[in-house]
Every structure is written in structure tokens, then in C-alpha cells.
Design a protein around this nucleic acid. Structure first.
Lengths: 238, 238
DNA sequence: TCAAAAGTGTTCATTCTACACCCATGG
DNA sequence: CCATGGGTGTAGAATGAACACTTTTGA
């Protein structure tokens, strides 16, 4: 097969997660911004934000660009999720979609322009979405929760320094269950990824908690396969 | 951006794993078939087998088709690994590659046509490959070894029934370390994924081992994100 | 001095690991 | 009867969950 015979369009979409309080309970939970489709198929239904991949940008850059264009958000974390390439049935043209998932901090999330065509939804209470986007979001949720337990992505929801309570609340919001503060502390301390700072937070009606930060030398950005071990430059694949 | 402005070609390549004995030690280890490139860039260097994605086939189908065409192999397991989409620098045209990884049984692996342009290499002793293919294979190895510990993919290297020794040897070959037979047995038994058959293997100069098989209702085929929970139909993504 | 969250200690259950030991077969 | 791998038992270490208890602050 000659490659110039190909008639495949390449799209990029992103599942964006942010922590926001649930109106009723006030507890933090995962929220996702969705955009309303303007064209068929699934016109006027909610869908993941995305767009076409440009000729001169990497897939990751395309994801970041589309994410900024559709929701005005710049994520603290961005990682590829999966490439969907089944032959499209509903439309004549063939589309392959690369799905990313992203985490944004709370302050950043508030910058998201919410309007008639962009709205935040609680991740565990979504409407019927366009295409298979419900399934994709379930998968992204599974990845986020799984990765939460062995990596340091909780960092993407926090500032430079934070208390152990704040970190625990992030974990609780993502995993949707309470964690024992004592055991959580030991777990984190034993992992060796945090270093205590010399500062504490005063003002609460209780003992002031110490501020921590992640140790150096650990970048948050996901390099994909090239980053799972310390390898050097990123190159392109045939 | 209009999608008809896109000039991106879509390629599919596969990291194929099979277990074969190492000539010197006789121990089983992971081997990978590679193909010699006929064109620039990296002409005459070894690379992952692959080809272009067809307009009317899913990405998985494209991977299986190219795999059969280049190595004559039909894998027992096939799963998407990662989509590489950096802007190509060495060649003028833009290529996005979807990489798959596959497992083939030993009998099947022997069918692979080995010639001047297709050869098997021990996975932990590879030459310098074209593009970033060394890094990609490292990542595929990591995925295989990680997944070995929580899923049932070892099955892809075995026949319908097998002894616990055979299963353990698969694990040892993949993980590259010895496993305690007693503890391995209990671990597997407690996982509840195996059922003993009524048959044993006689002929050895020792107590005849029992044959086991995987329990029903668990398909080996990987459905990707759509398969991580029991969800229904596969649809296409925008 | 009291409430509340920070932080420490301890106990119990579960799991992992190493290894001793018996079993069944072919030679 | 012996060598060999199949298969079982068990003691100690490591890990994790549950929870009592002490500490330090603001009010």
C-alpha cells in the first residue's frame, strides 16, 4: 500500500480532570469540562474537547493546543490514553482519534470559560455523551485512579508546597473513599518522595501542620514510553 | 483547521514476543523478530515489522495484517502500546505510528520465515535499531513484565492445558528470575483463574504433574479501553 | 480548658518468603 | 531403592488496616 492512498484524518481529544467541590456536600470530587457538538453526528450533544492534529505539531502539542482553544485551560499534567482507530460507520470519512487525559489545578480550572457550549460535569454523574465518550472517560478514570496509587500525579492538583492533609484530600477525592490519616502519613513518608519544609501553616484552630514539597529530580511531565526509564532524547518513529 | 489540509500518514508497527531457548544456556527467554529496512532513512538497519494503515481496516486489523505479511505470524495476543506522533525530522513527510505488542506461542513462532531480511533477536541483547525502536521495545518489555503480574497473558505462550511447571517457566522466562515452585503454586491457586483437569502427564522420571486450564468466561483478546470493564459494543470515536 | 486536627504508637490480620518435608513415578 | 520433580506444611518477616493516644494550636 502506498501511503499517499491514505484518506485518514487524525483527531486529538482530551479527558480533562479537575477537583471541585460538589455543591450539595461540599466535598471535593473529579469534574470534567465537556463541549457541545455543533455538527452531526451527535449534534448538540456533549463531547470531549478536541480537534484535528496539525501537520507540524506533535500529538501532545496538538492535544494541548486544542485544549487551550476549546476550554482555555493549560494542564499541569498531560498523558496519552489510547488511540481509537475503528472504521467509522456513522460518517463517510475515516477518523483516527488519539485521546489524552489531563489534570489541572483548582485555580487553573476556575479560568475555564463556561458558557452555552462548555460546561463542567461531575465525572461520576455524566449525561449520555457523543460517540463512545462515556466509555473513554470511564477508562481515563480507571487510569487516573490506578496511577494515583503508584505515581506522584496527585502533585498536579497541588501547589508547590502543601500539607499532608491537603495531599490526603486529593487522594480521597480521586479514589472516592476515606483514608486513615495516620496510615496515609506513614505510607507517604516511607515512599520517600516528599521532603518536609521548614514552614508550617498557622491560623487553624489546631496544631499547625507542616508544609511538604516533592523532592527534586522528579519531573511531573509524562514523557510517554520514553520516560518510563531515564532515557534521553525523543525521536520519531517510522 | 480543516481536516482535508492534513498530510499525515498513519503507520502501524508491532513488537512481537515469543519464548525461545537461548542457544548457550538452553533456558527460555524472550525473542523478537525484526525486519531489515530497505529504504532510507536507516536503510539496511533492523526495525520493527509494520506498514501503513488501510482506509477500511481498524488499527488492530492493520497491525495483524502487517504482522502476517512481514513475518507470517498470527499472534495469540495483540494489544496497543502507544501512538508516536512527534514531527518527523529525518524525512519530509509526516508520519504517526501506532505501535502494538503481540505474543505468539512457540509452535507458531517456528513458522516465522527467517531470511536475509527477517531475523529473531534476543530481547535483552538487541543491536542498534532504526528510529527509536530500541526505546519502544524497552517500553513494550516493561509493559509485558508489568502486566504479567496482574493479568493472565502468560496464557498466550501456552496451549489449552499445561502443568504448573510449564506456567512457572513462562513467568520465569519473562521476568528473568527464578520463582519458588511452592509459593508460585499457591499464588496461582489463590487467584482462582486456573481449574485443574482430570489429566496428568506421565513419562517423566518423577511424580506425574496435573494438567490445568484457564477457567471459562475469560477471553484472552485485549479489547483495549473498552475491555477493562464489561462493556458492550465497540463504537468509533470522533 | 476545650475542640480539632497534627502527629505517634501499638495491635492484629493478611500476605510474602524461605525452606523443610512428604509423595509418586521411572529407572 | 534412588533420583527427580510434584505437591504440602509451616515459621518468620513484611506489609497493611484499625484505632488508642499524645501534642499543639486558636478561641
Amino acid at each position: 500500500m502506498q501511503k499517499n492512498e491514505q484518506r485518514i484524518s487524525l483527531a486529538v481529544s482530551t479527558v480533562i480532570f479537575a477537583l471541585r467541590p460538589i455543591p450539595e456536600s461540599g466535598q471535593s470530587a473529579l469534574w470534567i469540562p465537556l463541549v457541545r457538538r455543533t455538527r452531526e453526528p451527535f449534534a448538540r450533544q456533549w463531547a470531549l474537547p478536541g480537534g484535528w492534529a496539525g501537520n507540524d505539531e506533535s500529538l501532545t502539542d496538538a492535544a494541548a493546543r486544542n485544549l487551550l482553544a476549546t476550554t482555555a485551560l493549560e494542564p499541569a499534567y498531560l498523558e496519552q490514553l489510547y488511540a481509537f482507530g475503528d472504521v467509522e460507520r456513522s460518517v463517510s470519512s475515516r477518523v483516527v482519534s488519539i485521546i489524552y487525559w489531563a489534570l489541572v489545578r483548582q485555580e487553573e480550572a476556575e479560568r475555564a470559560t463556561e458558557n452555552e457550549n462548555v460546561r463542567w460535569f461531575a465525572a461520576d454523574n455524566l449525561p449520555e455523551l457523543a460517540f463512545d465518550h462515556n466509555v473513554i472517560i470511564d477508562y481515563a478514570l480507571w487510569r487516573l485512579r490506578t496511577k494515583m496509587e503508584y505515581s506522584r500525579i496527585a502533585r498536579a492538583f497541588l501547589g508547590e508546597t502543601f500539607t499532608l492533609s491537603e495531599l490526603r484530600l486529593v487522594h480521597e477525592a480521586v479514589l472516592q473513599r476515606q483514608l486513615d490519616p495516620a496510615n496515609f502519613r506513614r505510607q507517604i513518608e516511607n515512599s520517600g518522595s516528599l521532603v518536609p519544609t521548614d514552614y508550617v501553616v498557622s491560623g487553624g484552630r489546631h496544631r499547625p501542620p507542616r508544609l511538604y514539597r516533592y523532592d527534586e529530580g522528579v519531573e511531573l511531565v509524562d514523557n510517554g514510553p520514553l520516560g518510563h526509564k531515564k532515557t534521553g532524547s525523543t525521536r520519531v518513529i517510522d
